[in-house]
Structures are given as structure tokens and as C-alpha cells.
């Protein structure tokens, strides 16, 4: 398989790095599989990846071409700000995921206030399947959040933040080699950093913050600690350089300038910096090649060949950074 990697034609941008990295992960001797049969990374898989990249190129371009998302107070009144976020259309299959464009005419704080409660709520909701219709909820559900994604945030009254909860205890993995949250279909958010695609389970998601404020660096911290993002919906957020954490051997220092968002994890005071937020997907547990030994890369729950991404174990990440 290693030879195949070298036979593959050069990939544009970070795609090559992604495929190389996933190839390494999938062939890590420490990695085990609970999936019935390992699906090799075939040319068709790589083509699918390329297709997916193209599908979301439009969203990414819109993201980069959009004005700085509500960064300063002077921008707060700019009604033209738009922030594309990968949002799954409720009845569509994963392949037909659309990039929703959210009108951000409010300030960054308003948007953060909107994002955070809904995403925090998602952490308490069971993963919704595609076929389920939203019940009239007293609190917003995952589907409700996706519906809200098309609404104008300017008309959205900031909701009071839910009471912060105690840091959840690390959830043990079940005997079938899967985490508790992956016993049935679960939803993930895919994001990209330094060419690498990562997926974080929605149940672990806190909020998404634009990286548009100065980070306060702290002395004596590891290299992967970028600093503190002040005054977010979740207070002061410790921002981790995701690429440096997960693949220090391939980290390129100039990639730091591409970081645009911080994905915070529910229950923890840290967030993962990323280049782009791509989309949310629903995964069946069988689609994931679960790792059986997570001592080498505790942050890695498994890999998803179909989407060519690595699934993040947030509890493992917490162990990694402490």
C-alpha cells in the first residue's frame, strides 16, 4: 500500500497530504479494526474525495471572499456579512449536502450566542436519524438548528446562555470497540486543517467561533497552544493548533495564517483551530474503522475511508493535551 501511495499522481493543495496522512493512519500497526473488512483507498475513493472537495469549494470560496465575519464593533452593523457553514439538508443524503449561507448582520458575539446554545443543545440530544421528523421541541434539536441555519440572524434575539455544566467524565468505550456515542448512527461535523480532514461528533460539539480576535499567548505553554481567545460565548477559550497536535511531523508553520475558526468542544475550555468548516454528515458505526489501541494517538477514534477523514475522540484529545 505504501508503494501505491508513491504511484499516485501528485495531488493538488492539501489533498495529497490528507491522503498520505490517512494512509499512514490506516496502516498504523497500532490501529485495529472492528469493521468487517477494510476497504482500501482506491482510485475511486480518491475521486469521491475530489468530488467532495469540489462540491464544497463554492462554500469555501464564499467563506474566503466574505468580509471578515463580524469581527470588530465597527462591523457589527454590516448587514452584508455572510458566513457559509456546511449544513445538512434534512431529507437529503450525505452526498447531497448543501452549504447554507447564513446572513450575519449581527456582531460576532451575537452570532456566537446563536451558535453556542444550539450546538450545546445538540450535545444533550440523541443523534437524530435522517428519517426522523422534528417533534415540536421545547428546546432546539439538531434538526431545529439546521432549519435555523437559513434564518436571518439579525432577527434572532440572543438567548441566554445555558448554565455551564461540569466537565463530563471520560466516557468509556463499549466492548464492541466503539465509543458510547457511536452505538448507532451519529452525526459529525467535518472540518479541515492544513489539508487534513477531521470529523468531530456533533454530540461533543460546543460552538464555532471565528478566529478574528487577537489571541493572548501564555508563557511556558506547549507549541500547540496558540493562546486564549477572549470573550467568547464560552468565556475565554484556549485555542489549540490542531495541525501541530495531530500531525506535528507534517506541520507547516505558514499554514497558521489559514486558520479561520475555532471549534470548541462541549464541556471543555479549549477549541480546535481549523481552516474551514465543511459540512455535517451522518455516519453508521460500520463506516468507521475504529481504533482499538489509542495510546499512540489518543485523539483518534477512527478513520472514515468514505470521507477520507479522521474521527476525533474528544475525551482522548483532552488526555492528549493535559
Amino acid at each position: 500500500m505504501k508503494d501505491e501511495k508513491h504511484e499516485t499522481a501528485p495531488h493538488p493543495d492539501g489533498e495529497g497530504a490528507l491522503i498520505e496522512y490517512l494512509d499512514d493512519l490506516l496502516h498504523d500497526p497500532a490501529a485495529g479494526s472492528s469493521a468487517p473488512a477494510e476497504k482500501p483507498v482506491s482510485a475511486s475513493d480518491k475521486n469521491k474525495l475530489t468530488d467532495n472537495v469540489h462540491v464544497f469549494d463554492a462554500g469555501r470560496k464564499a467563506l474566503r471572499s466574505a468580509p471578515a465575519v463580524a469581527g470588530s464593533e465597527s462591523e457589527a452593523g454590516n448587514a452584508g456579512n455572510k458566513m457559509p457553514i456546511g449544513a445538512r439538508a434534512g431529507s437529503k443524503s450525505n452526498r447531497d449536502i448543501k452549504v447554507a449561507t447564513i446572513d450575519l448582520s449581527g456582531s460576532g458575539l451575537q452570532r456566537a450566542s446563536w451558535l453556542s446554545p444550539s450546538l450545546l443543545t445538540a450535545a444533550h440530544q440523541p443523534s437524530s436519524s435522517e428519517s426522523k421528523k422534528p417533534e415540536p421541541p421545547k428546546t432546539p434539536s439538531v434538526e431545529a438548528r439546521q432549519t435555523d441555519a437559513t434564518t436571518d440572524l439579525a432577527q434572532h434575539t440572543p438567548q441566554p446562555e445555558p448554565q455551564a455544566e461540569a466537565i463530563p467524565q471520560s466516557q468509556p468505550w463499549c466492548e464492541n470497540g466503539r465509543p458510547v456515542w457511536a452505538q448507532k448512527a451519529f452525526e459529525c461535523l467535518i472540518f479541515k486543517v492544513n489539508g487534513l480532514k477531521l470529523a468531530v461528533p456533533l454530540i461533543s460539539l460546543g460552538s464555532i467561533q471565528p478566529l478574528n480576535k487577537k489571541l493572548t499567548g501564555l508563557p511556558g505553554q506547549p507549541d500547540w497552544f496558540m493562546g486564549i481567545l477572549p470573550d467568547t460565548a464560552q468565556g475565554n477559550l484556549k485555542v489549540l493548533n490542531t495541525a501541530l497536535c495531530v500531525m506535528p511531523e507534517r506541520y507547516q508553520a505558514d499554514s497558521r495564517s489559514a486558520l479561520q475558526y475555532v471549534i470548541s468542544i462541549h464541556g471543555f475550555a479549549w477549541g480546535l483551530a481549523c481552516d474551514t468548516v465543511e459540512k455535517s454528515i451522518t455516519l453508521q458505526p460500520e463506516q468507521v474503522k475504529w481504533r482499538t489501541q489509542r495510546s499512540k494517538r489518543p485523539w483518534l477514534a477512527g478513520t472514515v475511508v468514505e470521507y477520507m477523514c479522521s474521527l476525533v475522540d474528544t475525551d482522548g484529545f483532552q488526555q492528549f493535551i493535559i
Partner: peptide, 28 residues
């Protein structure tokens, strides 16, 4: 005053007592 961040090993940041948001910036 917020407690010092809990990342990395404790030894490296032992002298950071906490952080505080003041005048749009963080004091260490």
C-alpha cells in the same frame, strides 16, 4: 480572575496565577 489554563504540564505554567479580561484584552 479566571484560573490559569489547564493545558500542557503543570510545571511549565506554574507561575501563571490566572487571566483576567480588562479593557478588551487579557491580563496574565
Amino acid at each position: 480572575i479566571e484560573t490559569s489554563p489547564n493545558v500542557g504540564n503543570d510545571e511549565s505554567a506554574r507561575y501563571i496565577q490566572g487571566v483576567c479580561h480588562k479593557d478588551d484584552e487579557l491580563l496574565i
